[in-house]
Design a binder for these strands. Sequence first.
DNA 1: CTTGACCTACGAAGATCTTCGTATACAATC
DNA 2: GATTGTATACGAAGATCTTCGTAGGTCAAG
Lengths: 138, 138
Amino acid sequence: MNQTDPTSDPTLDSPPRPTAGELEILGVLWDRGPSTVREVHEHLAADRAVGYSTVLKLLQIMLSKGLVTRNERFRSHVYAASSPAEQTQRQLVDHLLDAAFGGSASQLVLRALSDRPTSPEELAEIRRLLDDIEGDPP
Amino acid sequence: MNQTDPTSDPTLDSPPRPTAGELEILGVLWDRGPSTVREVHEHLAADRAVGYSTVLKLLQIMLSKGLVTRNERFRSHVYAASSPAEQTQRQLVDHLLDAAFGGSASQLVLRALSDRPTSPEELAEIRRLLDDIEGDPP
DNA sequence: CTTGACCTACGAAGATCTTCGTATACAATC
DNA sequence: GATTGTATACGAAGATCTTCGTAGGTCAAG
């Protein structure tokens, strides 16, 4: 194999949807920014029992999938999420929309809002978003 | 087999979160109502290649998990979703909220709405929901 | 009663995810 | 240069999901 077949170059595809464990790690990276394995492990271990080498292995897999990047300039490699939270969240919502809501965003919103107590500030923010959308139609 | 051991009666726990394949089947059952394996299979096979016994097996597993019920009165067993769409959708949104949005419903709503073109009707429906929530605070 | 059509039950293979033990590398210190 | 602490790499086991082949039961028609 030689030059890049555009259809099979992994760096060109957006990374796959993260699994549950991967998402947990991404959450830490989004919060903290670029981190070493040790740092990620410490954060996760605060919540639940998990071994160091489990986190390491997961990060290596995530690297091979393109979910994270890593900087090897230091002895302790530094990992960072390769996509911002917004983009991955969008991807996840998109998937859920298709898989469980027949594509109806309003149904999903309905469930989300009737699901948990939502603060007045959040409600206001959503109204603002609706105004935006309706005021500036595609 | 005899009487039910109450500690292992699957009907007492709420059913677990369905997997991707299970969700696909639930979609058919929610749409069509109670259906035979054949009917479910026909619907799925219209979209993608899948064997009859795959669908059967999946339904049997779903039965053991409590995701569906079945009526054996006829030669062809009739399966039905054991929870309404709303409840399962709520469960899925709940999970996604925790796993990817740090529990912030408004963030999820934001992603959902900015994600896809949403029809004016849907937007209006969401506004109505907001009015409901704000008009009748907990 | 035999055959054919249709149905359920069962087992098992292959894929993916999660988890971790252990081997190996490296750098600093004695 | 041997030792010790810290890192990464690797392999493999166990769990769950997906998929389907095939055996075996039942009913109606011949």
